[in-house]
């Protein structure tokens, strides 16, 4: 799989600010697909968090080390079995959900090793994407900067899809922020007007 962090710069770190606003001080955090470790570094300086990034790519592992972030080189697709249950306060998957193959397993693993999970993903239901599909082409945008043939994104999902997924998999949405292309918060018709969604969720109590 490919980590989605190549796309995070496109958000101007707005997702970092949203995630940062949700994280409690001194929390223990696992950042899956941590890229160059910028998010963990940000959270450490803002909230004194501890924790680890997980990254598969050699160059990004090196970049994380340069950033002074704890990084563990591993393939997310192989699962998180090396982490004990409930060992993190938050497990973050930033702009990577659409690019992982074993989505259900990864999301359930996130809620096994973490008390809460945070994901961000590009919303394929965004009106520009719908328009582009209507005119016969796969969406290419700032949040989805790939052609169909070189895209790491193997799952196409919308905000509505994700919420149905949450309900069906025993996940309770704690908070949601939807952003448009200008990184402004979207409050009406999010599945139509939102380019990126940021979710915090936990296990719903049965």
């Amino acid at each position: 799989m490919s980590s989605g962090t190549g796309q995070s710069g496109k958000l101007g770190r707005r997702d970092f600010e949203i995630i940062s606003s949700w994280i409690k001080r001194d929390a223990h955090v696992l950042d899956l697909g941590c890229g160059n470790g910028a998010l963990l570094r940000h959270l450490r300086s803002q909230h004194n968090v501890s924790g680890y990034g997980v990254e598969i790519d050699d160059t990004k592992v090196l970049a994380s080390v340069k950033n002074g972030v704890n990084v563990l080189q591993a393939d997310l697709e192989a699962g998180l079995s090396e982490f004990d249950a409930d060992s993190f306060d938050y497990v973050i998957l930033s702009l990577t959900l659409q690019a992982v193959r074993h989505t259900e397993r990864i999301v359930s693993d996130m809620l096994r090793v973490g008390r809460e999970a945070i994901v961000t993903f590009p919303n394929f239901g965004y009106w520009r994407h719908r328009l582009r599909v209507l005119f016969g082409q796969v969406p290419v945008s700032r949040e989805l900067p790939y052609q169909w043939y070189d895209s790491p994104n193997i799952h196409v999902l919308t905000i509505d899809d994700f919420e149905i997924f949450c309900a069906a998999h025993g996940m309770r949405v704690c908070e949601r922020v939807v952003l448009d292309e200008a990184c402004n918060q979207v409050n009406v018709l999010p599945n139509l007007l939102g380019a990126v969604a940021v979710y915090r969720f936990d296990k719903s109590v049965a």
Binding site: H28, S50, Y52, D58, V61, L62, S64, V65, V69, N70, V71, L72, Q73, A74, E82, F83, D84, S87
Partner: peptide, 13 residues
């Protein structure tokens, strides 16, 4: 990791 110690791990192919 179990002890929350600072560690980075790299696997060189």
């Amino acid at each position: 990791v179990d002890n929350r110690h600072n560690v980075s791990y790299a696997e060189i192919e």
